[in-house]
């Protein structure tokens, strides 16, 4: 990570948590260090927003929302977040589904996909919506909403996806501007397990 302040300046509670993580991993993931640096300034409210968006009540499953997080991270070319959220999504919906979402053109879902990796029409349309919202936010308008609704997405579900999209547009930028070190395999497995069982609350 680029700045030494978020790497080293932490309170007692945060240092204890980091010590516990070091019992399991060679290094504390940079995202943890950054969110625990002056947590009241950013990390705590931000993780609360993420927790509500990715784990709170929604028509989307946790797996759907992790796929959205992975897709936004992919469009922002954020290697760190692609790693974490692909691994987390994989543990919920399987590797093949994640691969399909990240390389998909997000047109109409094809009928010949194997069942396990079929992206439902509503999820597909929602992924296309947040893809555009990430890459060309000022071009998104009511016609994009109309397309999603026509594919079976409710307005509430679309609002939930906007929150995921917005939050990851923040995180991807913090991760890349601070140059978070991509996690190794063991670290990714640890994060995926923690995020699927305990969520994001710090």
């Amino acid at each position: 990570m680029r700045l030494s302040a978020p790497r080293h300046e932490h309170g007692l509670r945060e240092r204890i948590i980091q010590r516990l993580i070091r019992l399991r991993l060679d290094a504390v993931p940079d995202v943890v260090l950054a969110c625990q640096h002056r947590p009241e300034f950013f990390g705590k409210p931000f993780l609360a927003w993420i927790e509500t968006s990715l784990r709170g009540p929604s028509q989307w499953t946790q797996g759907d929302r992790e796929l959205m997080a992975a897709l936004v991270s992919d469009r922002n070319r954020c290697a760190f977040c692609i790693g974490t959220h692909s691994a987390t999504a994989s543990s919920l919906v399987g590797d093949e589904m994640v691969r399909r979402v990240l390389r998909a053109d997000l047109g109409d879902p094809k009928d010949d996909e194997p069942d396990g990796a079929k992206i439902s029409a509503d999820l597909c349309a929602t992924l296309a919506f947040i893809d555009k919202l990430t890459l060309s936010p000022a071009q998104v308008d009511a016609s994009d909403v109309e397309r999603a609704v026509a594919a079976g997405v409710s307005v509430e579900a679309l609002r939930d996806a906007v929150e995921v999209c917005a939050a990851f547009n923040v995180m991807n930028r913090v991760a890349d501007a601070l140059a978070f070190e991509p996690q190794d395999k063991k670290s990714l497995a640890f994060s995926a397990k923690l995020l699927t069982t305990r969520g994001y609350r710090a």
């Binding site: 919506f129 936010p137 998104v140 308008d141 909403v145 609002r159 917005a166 939050a167 990851f168």
Partner: peptide
């Protein structure tokens, strides 16, 4: 950057 996306997304939904 994130807030702008949130606003644009929610505004499009309200417009629809």
């Amino acid at each position: 950057a994130g807030l702008a996306r949130r606003e644009r997304g929610l505004a499009a939904i309200s417009a629809w």
